[in-house]
Simulated assay, not measured.
Amino acid sequence: MKAFNKTARSYTEFFVFVTPAMIFILLAAIIPFLMSLYYSLTKWNGVGKNIKFIGLDNFIELFTTDTGSLQSLLFTLLYGILNVILTNVTAITLAVILTKALKSKAVLRAAFFIPNIISLVIIGFIWKFVFTRVFEALHEVTHWSVFQWSWLGDQHLAFVSILLVSVWQSVGFYMMIYITGLQSIPSELNEAASIDGVVGLKRFFTITLPLLMPSLTVAFFLTIANSLKVFDIIYTLTFGGPGGATTSITMDIYNEAFVNNRFGYATAKSLLFVVLILLITVFQVKFFKSKEVEA
């Protein structure tokens, strides 16, 4: 009887603590996902009651006639590759510098981290003002032609502008991840390497970088996911222009759903986008995990 009561109590505790979480997951994730699967097979404007089931027509259109999706995919992949590389290289460089015995390192860490706590929408509007009004004023003072360029009106410069703002805004967050990783490396290893004559870049690539792999795994996972999902900066800086040159996948989905009123088609694009992010991030995490070593 005691065993039965103990078992019953354990099951009761399990359901008391697990059931609320399961209900939340069901309402917040599973049901919306199943509804998205259904809407991706329909023709619907997202508002009206008339929902027409069209099967796989949305996916067929996406893979056959929608050239805009291919352009947005290429932009997103190019932006993602460059953003991941520039952000992580810059963050690692800053982390190495700011782990040295500098008197102002605490102030510098805070200065680099502050842009990360500001809303991306606000960041976008601030930089839009900088690229237009501030650069115009600087050109009148300095007469440097670089300030007269159309940073948001030219296709190539608009891409560069978005990339620079994204790196500037996020680098402080990843810098802190790398600083934490660097501080967890035993100082004895660096001292032993110095005695053996392993210094500078050679010590960084042979000792520091391999031991920094756990931080690299986390940072690359976040930068890849955030790069593929980029929306706020593009929405506020260029709105996908000029001529759709800076339209990301998320911006393309937004336009289909809320500009073209093709909610079913946008949902089909969203599902494929989720699959793309899942495949890339799973491959990245498995690859980086295989490279991790223990101190």
Rank of each mutant, 00 (worst) to 15 (best):
I233G: 00
I23Y: 06
W144T: 03
I179M: 08
T217C: 13
V130P: 00
F135K: 04
I85Y: 02
V259R: 11
I118V: 14
T65Y: 10
T180M: 07
T99N: 15
A257S: 03
I30H: 09
A95H: 07
A3C: 06
I162Q: 05
K6A: 06
L86V: 08
F288G: 00
L272H: 07
G241N: 05
V16S: 09
L216A: 05
S10T: 13
K128Y: 03
L278I: 09
L86Y: 06
P210C: 00
K269P: 04
E61T: 11
F113C: 07
L70E: 01
F258R: 09
I92Q: 11
F75M: 00
A101M: 12
K52Y: 10
L222W: 13
F113S: 05
F75P: 00
N83I: 09
S161Q: 04
T281R: 08
T267W: 00
I117Y: 05
Q71R: 15
T208Y: 09
R109K: 15
A225D: 08
A111N: 04
P214K: 09
I123N: 07
Y174W: 11
R203S: 11
I81R: 06
L94K: 04
S10R: 11
K269E: 01
I25G: 08
E140S: 06
L276N: 02
M176S: 11
W44T: 04
K2P: 07
I277H: 03
A295R: 10
F239R: 15
S145N: 12
I114G: 07
S145Q: 12
